[in-house]
Design a protein around this nucleic acid. Structure first.
Length: 716
DNA sequence: GGATAACTGGTTTTT
DNA sequence: CCAGTTATCC
């Protein structure tokens, strides 16, 4: 038997050992949330719950696997029969077993990100929309809005009105494009990410199907509940069932949701914090347990994190505490440019490598491309890294090529895969693809062979795929056959860099080896690519977007590019809600650090457009940092860092005029204060004078701030 | 008409 | 670095 009291605190113990009924665990950053889930899994199994009756829904498959693995270690027995993964992966599995009726028995295929943009581009061309119109949004942007509308469950026109005022002239065109895209998916049997969730909900709407799943999964655990969207919350409810007060029915309603509203960072894709705030209303009789003590970070790190939340909108106020004292100070480094930032970060990583192993160090940033300079500098310095977020292994063209062959083995009428394989042959472009596909979809051997006769290369490929299908092999054997078939083409397809692409292509066979079913493997590739290389990860530092760093932790964390327009992102400055999400994102980034936290705010950023360095404002999250919370280091020419004890007046703790542009794109200013003749940056208004040297200012949408008068402009 | 080469301008975050 | 556009070639 496991000794639960030895390693758990009181609140954790209560969560782990709670009996039947709904439970909500509100777990602050670093409060032992993962440990709690692991022990909960072990406790359930130890107290008679069959492992296969537990469903663990997490944010990444990796998180689920790790928790199950560690719970298995505790128990001394594997938890391989427990299902764990993302909502999307679970939905795929459920729909695979219960085909939606409207498909009429046809196979369905999961689209990956590029399939989605390709499909939208195709519809856009078919409808002749936005041709040569520079103001028409990019296909990827359109895909983003389509998905956002569905995740927020709002009409597309409403989303555009709220979030993309400048696209309103195209509203009608985009709505018709959305209709066409939906029709295209249904016609071709294609599911995008959002379809998975809504189709699963549709499945659960059938009471018989829902009851079967409820009986199968008597205990449901949902991690990162603050980042679920509305349909995911409804799915949770449908899977758990709801018992009215006092009722003892068939629905077990053993659901445990774990989350932290201060770490909600996915509102952009429809995550709704109300799911966690309203949990008790949805599930009557919920037991709420709070984990508040932080075991992860040192005091200096927590003070910075707490200060970020102290400036947040009301509902997110929260303070983490630790019983441990001491720890290195948080460092705020101000390089001259993003180029020298890369140099300084490399230098700092060298220092940290004397103390920590590579895998205990991470560099975090707001967007994938922010790390380009650093990636080059690390390469030159010979420091190995792996990058999360941004381009993935499975998004490389040559990997998509082989996966496309595998998808055709599953389903010859998989439109995106067919288009990809067909276009590998010279002389076949988009139009020919459409023609040949139309002929193939009639499923008449005579017509098929006639259509293919004109394209011998493609005919050979189709023959190869048909043969492979007939053999009914294991996924790894199918991929080795595909590789053998594909290798000779590689040199011709990618003359510039085929040797590089050849490297690591065989890894896909290793990845496939863990799977018994080809379609599940292919679906997983689209949902979340497995670790590309498991070999020397211990010897690499981590580069990651903050979003991809969620749920992870390192001894040393460096956050780069803390400047306005980057972190917070330019797009977030228009609306206060988005700005608040950036703040929580910064909070998530800081709370990843166990011992060392370095913040980098370069004074300038290289811009291609002007072929020079542009001076930039520091991120408001840096400017608002109270003096004394971080040690400040300034770079001077020549790359030397100097410790700065007194803060510069430019370090004003409020958004600058740049970050408070109105919709016309002009910096807005209020008139000078009648009493003191001071002017405020942006739209701020002085509401109170606090003698001798401070004023209270209200920034519409950002709230009240107290500011030193010397930071303000005098009317001239 | 349709495929491919050359060019240009602009980058959020993810399943 | 990559998607979308225009120019050129079959």
């Amino acid at each position: 038997m496991i000794d639960y009291t030895a390693t758990l605190n009181e609140a954790q113990y209560e969560a782990v050992t709670s009996g039947d009924g709904p439970v909500l665990v509100v777990a602050g950053a670093g409060s032992g949330k993962t440990r709690t889930i692991i022990y909960r899994l072990a406790w359930l199994v130890e107290h008679g719950t069959p492992p296969e009756s537990i469903l663990l829904l997490t944010f990444t498959r990796k998180a689920a696997h790790e928790m199950l693995h560690r719970a298995g270690l505790l128990l001394g027995a594997g938890l391989s029969r427990t299902q764990g993964g993302t909502f999307h992966a679970f939905a795929y599995g459920a729909l695979r077993a219960n085909h939606p009726l409207w498909l009429n028995g046809r196979p369905f295929t999961l689209m990956d990100a590029s399939d989605i943009t390709d499909a939208i581009r195709h519809c856009k061309e078919a409808l002749k929309l936005g041709r040569g119109d520079r103001s028409f949004p990019k296909t990827q942007t359109i895909a983003g809005f389509f998905s956002k509308a569905r995740n927020k469950e709002l009409p597309l026109a409403d989303v555009l009105e709220r979030e993309a005022f400048h696209l309103l002239p195209h509203s009608e065109a985009l709505v018709s494009l959305e209709v066409a895209y939906t029709a295209w998916r249904r016609e071709k049997g294609l599911f995008d990410y959002d379809d998975l969730l809504f189709e699963l909900e549709g499945l659960l709407a059938d009471e018989t199907a829902a009851r079967i799943l409820r009986r199968r999964f008597t205990h449901i655990l949902v991690d990162e509940y603050q980042d679920t969207n509305r349909v995911q919350a409804r799915i949770t409810r449908l899977l758990a069932g709801v018992r009215a007060a006092g009722e003892v029915g068939a629905d077990p309603c053993n659901v445990m949701a774990v989350g932290d509203e201060a770490q909600s960072i996915y509102a952009f894709r429809g995550a709704d914090v109300r799911n966690i705030l309203d949990f008790q209303k949805i599930f009557p009789g919920t037991r709420v347990i709070r984990l508040e003590e932080n075991y992860r970070s040192t005091k200096p790190v927590l003070e910075v994190a707490n200060s970020l939340l102290a400036n947040a909108a009301e509902s997110f106020h929260k303070t983490l505490f630790t019983r441990t004292e001491g720890g290195d100070p948080v460092r705020l480094v101000m390089p001259l440019s993003d180029m020298s930032e890369a140099t300084l970060v490399v230098r700092r990583i060298r220092e940290l490598l004397d103390i920590y192993l590579p895998h205990e160090i991470a560099v975090l940033f707001r967007a994938g491309f922010h790390s380009y300079h650093l990636e080059m500098a690390l390469q030159q310095a010979g420091i190995a890294f792996r990058k999360y977020g941004g381009l993935r292994y499975t998004e490389a063209a040559h990997v998509k090529d082989i996966v496309a062959y595998a998808r055709l083995v599953l389903n010859l009428l998989d439109m995106p895969a067919f288009a990809r394989v067909a276009a590998l042959h010279s002389g076949i472009g988009p139009k020919t693809v459409q023609k040949v596909y139309a002929a193939l979809s009639l499923c008449d051997p005579a017509i098929t062979s006639k259509a293919l006769a004109r394209y011998p290369g493609l005919q050979e490929d189709i023959g190869f795929v048909d043969k492979l299908r007939a053999l009914q092999q294991k996924p790894e054997d199918i991929f080795s056959a595909v590789l053998e078939h594909y290798f000779p083409k590689l040199e011709f397809l990618y003359p510039d860099d085929w040797p590089r692409r050849r490297q690591g292509l065989e890894e896909i066979i290793q990845m496939a080896a863990g799977y018994a079913e080809l379609d599940i493997f292919v679906a997983d590739l689209a949902l979340e690519s497995p670790e590309a290389d498991g070999s020397d990860n211990e010897n690499r530092i981590t580069l990651s977007t903050v979003h991809s760093a969620k749920g992870l932790e390192w001894n040393a964390v460096l956050i780069i590019d803390l400047v306005e327009d980057r972190f917070p992102s330019r797009h977030a400055l228009a609306r206060p809600d988005d700005f608040e999400e950036e703040r929580r994102l910064m909070y998530v980034a800081c709370t990843r650090a166990r011992k060392n936290l370095d913040l980098y705010a370069p004074a300038s950023i290289y811009s291609r457009a002007t072929r020079g360095n542009l001076y930039v404002s520091q991120s408001p999250f840096v400017r608002e940092l109270p003096l004394g919370l971080a040690e400040e280091w300034v770079e001077s020419l020549g790359g030397t860092l100097t410790r700065r004890k007194i803060s510069h007046p430019a370090r004003s703790p409020h958004p600058s005029c740049d970050s408070l542009r109105n919709t016309e794109g002009e910096p807005a200013r209020s008139p000078a204060c009648g009493a003191c003749r001071h002017r405020i940056f942006g739209r701020g208004k002085i509401v109170k004078h606090l003698p001798p040297d401070k004023v209270q200012v209200n920034f519409p949408g950002f709230g009240l701030k107290i500011i030193l008068a010397e930071y303000l402009l005098m009317e001239d």
